[in-house]
Design a binder for these strands. Sequence first.
DNA 1: CTGTATTATCATGATGTCGTTATGTCGTTG
DNA 2: CAACGACATAACGACATCATGATAATACAG
Lengths: 101, 101
Amino acid sequence: MEALADYFKVFSEPNRLAVLDTLRGGALNVTAVVERTGLSQALVSKHLKLLTIAGVVRRRPEGSLVFYEVIDKGVYKLMQQGEKLLLASRRQKINALAASI
Amino acid sequence: MEALADYFKVFSEPNRLAVLDTLRGGALNVTAVVERTGLSQALVSKHLKLLTIAGVVRRRPEGSLVFYEVIDKGVYKLMQQGEKLLLASRRQKINALAASI
DNA sequence: CTGTATTATCATGATGTCGTTATGTCGTTG
DNA sequence: CAACGACATAACGACATCATGATAATACAG
């Protein structure tokens, strides 16, 4: 349970999800991620490091650039599954509200 | 992204996952969850409240007891998908280690 | 070798989360 | 209504996480 919770924690941060989102199309270097997310360079670097440690992303230095890419695209499936449940839970909450009137 | 991150945050806490796990078989009242998890009553109550607010769990008072049950069992599928990716990422980390030797 | 671009790290402050203890609330029972 | 059991909430301390600004480390160009 502990390890699973830690794994989900990786996806529990908006900026980290935004970073992951930029990597949908394939590998990008840090600056590219910075530009596409609008986040600070230091912040992007830290999130990418965390994602690397979590085993979600692979680091590949190339010259003076460092490219990052998602290892298992199944993470996007996980996110999609999360979205789906999120929407369902919203409908649920609306129903609960309506029932309480 | 924000909302999705918040949703994943619900599953990013070991004790909360443990609580959810006790509800796999169906509705349970608070004391039953306390007994099965070994967590304090106050803590279980708080986690159940959070799960309720998140729309993951439904609260149903019955006499002096309060039963909770998972609304959409899809959350267990989400957890399963998380487990799967977690295991894959572990294999990945081992490979990365091996490659670095 | 110097300077520059790219990426990583550090130190810090602000904020959030978790768990505990104590107490409050509500329903039931005698 | 008094007492009890079940559950919820409040207050608090400990700790984790996040974002920032400044600075380091690295690779490359000139």
